[in-house]
Nucleic acid binder design. Sequence first.
DNA 1: CCTCAATAGTTGGGCATCCAAGTTTTAGAG
DNA 2: CTCTAAAACTTGGATGCCCAACTATTGAGG
Lengths: 171, 171
Amino acid sequence: MTSMSSRAPLPFDPVEEARRHWAAHGWADAAEGMAAVTSLMRAQAIVLARVEAVLRPLGLTFARYEVLMLLLFSGRGSLPLSRIGERLQVHPASVTNAVDRLEATGLVERTPHPTDRRTTLAALTPAGRELATKATEALNAEVFARPGLPTDDVRTLVDVLATMRRDAGDF
Amino acid sequence: MTSMSSRAPLPFDPVEEARRHWAAHGWADAAEGMAAVTSLMRAQAIVLARVEAVLRPLGLTFARYEVLMLLLFSGRGSLPLSRIGERLQVHPASVTNAVDRLEATGLVERTPHPTDRRTTLAALTPAGRELATKATEALNAEVFARPGLPTDDVRTLVDVLATMRRDAGDF
DNA sequence: CCTCAATAGTTGGGCATCCAAGTTTTAGAG
DNA sequence: CTCTAAAACTTGGATGCCCAACTATTGAGG
């Protein structure tokens, strides 16, 4: 999802524009919140596009990359699908879908849970482990090391978003 | 997209967890950027879920709501599809899709451009204008007026994201 | 004028996410 | 020990977004 290839920049900030309209319609009390939500959506789309552009040549999407990293950071390199969904905060059906594709490309394998027959484990293959590392190095170099913000702002952003996430019950 | 219905909160911050793993793998220099990107993704998903939950009873999605508001704020209540795509920073195919659905539910009508026969205008119908207003009042009351952050943090967030968007060429 | 590149939209294919519903298995209540 | 609610996963359907390719129309040059 996402890309942006070459959409030209606008001559003004669309969020500010919207804020003015909100005020003009007597919705001034909600204008700030609207601006925050709109900014968040646009910024996420921009960042996701940058990330996906780096992962595409590696045959990965961000969703699948996240699954790989979760497995890489887990002790044995395997996790129940349900735990993956909890950690990434996505619907079980989305996990099934991601693991299907990772399995189809040989990056992950489904394994039965040793004691609970309801559960399926997703286990990293050697190829999966290798690609996860390679993808991370690419993302680190091309995106994470250059977030497009001063260091102080990055930290502020992380802190504010953490507050918001905590309040919303993310953790 | 998105919802979250009732996913239980995690006992820890997954972003902090990831940051620790990054440091442990010798990627400390990119850990902060990774944290920012991950936070942004999760926060966006949470907010989008709240927004969609409010719009669903009205038969709208956020994508279509954005189109309606853009038309509502345009002078005549109509715009070329190409302009909609530019403003919302989405692919032309996405605009076609959104307008198809809005047209199917009678909220918008396709009109030929008066002078340029390549261009199609999307024009708000009375029903579309009414629903856009109703939806905004619902969103203002249930989401925008309560962003889940202190006022100062909201403003900080908007400012930091604006910096990021400007740097990335959003405007 | 006429040719050809650029613009505007649409269509078809791929991926991601969600929801609802259905299956299998586990665990708790009586 | 049985019965039922909960948990884990999958499947089918809907929506959204993107890309590549194709049609139609416009506009700049020769």
